[in-house]
Amino acid sequence: MARHSELLLDVRDLRVCFATEEGIVQAVDEVSFKLHAGEVLAVVGESGSGKSVTAMTLMGLTRSPNARFDGSAKLRDLDLVTAGDDELRGVRAEQIAMIFQDPMTALNPLHRIGRQIVEQIQAHRDVSDGAARDQVVALLERVGIARARERYDAFPHELSGGMRQRVMIAMALSCEPAVLIADEPTTALDVTIQAQILELLKELRTRTNAGVILVTHDLGVVAEIADRIAVMYAGRIVEQGTTDEIFYNPQHPYTWGLLGSITRVDRPRPDRLPSIPGLPPSLIRPPRGCHFRPRCPHAHDACLSRPELRARVAGATGHEDRCVMSPESKRELREADGQIGLVAGGVTQ
């Protein structure tokens, strides 16, 4: 749908590593993706896969004396990786905004919520206090906060978790950014609230035409909202494509494993939810070649060399993956009775 719209973000070969006491952590390894206006890109992976580090690197929030960056991340014409502190400050919130995982701690407990949003608006625009206040009240109403005029003066601890996440969303929208990054925006919330927040994000995307990056560990969450999906494992994107491509023709065994662990309402519930055996690898000493190799039941000698991220399915240029097996053998290995899993037939072990 978004093929012809404006290209907002072009990330190429992004690498991020951190020096720690235990050694060098290669948190993000050769990550490339594009984001267009009005598009929702879901970045999916377990914790430790580098998805949050990628998101925060785009905001310049991972910069520290211990961090090294490589590659580029162009927001329109500005490379976010090499941008100076002042340039970065100018685009933060103004062009690229972020919603964080835990709304309980992401707001300053000592400031009234309204002021916290006004602070952001006034950092970028020359607006009077009164005008900013009206603008914030309108924003709060737009994200579904009732009695917004009263709530403007509330402290964060006086609001519920879902309410606070709405405040965070209002804050992120206040400068009408072109790119909105939502880092696990619903993980810390109740299930019913999760649905509401996702609904809100979906609606806002349509109305503002912003490009949205939705970072999550839950593939189930993104089925409805995402246009494209990038699956991350141990610092690398192992597969990316449209939502349909990922759900109906997944190429990487790790994606199969993720899909296999979703509970599906249209099928009888299995006795035991299939999960991927083993643990994600250490990012200090990652396995040679394919990072998923130690956990992959289909691994063979070819997996010992570093696999490239490229299109392997005939005719689908946007569908890229890092698994060297042929699409035909993949189809054979992943499915039994139309149910996708890491091993055909579901439960492993």
Binding site: F18, T20, E21, E22, V25, A27, E46, S47, G48, S49, G50, K51, S52, V53, M56, L61, T62, R63, S64, P65, N66, A67, Q101, L279, P280, S282, L283, I284
Partner: peptide
């Protein structure tokens, strides 16, 4: 281990 805390949640399993 890491000066910037924002990356810690994602690294803890490592």
């Amino acid at each position: 281990s890491i000066a910037d805390p924002s990356v810690q949640p994602d690294l803890s399993p490592v």
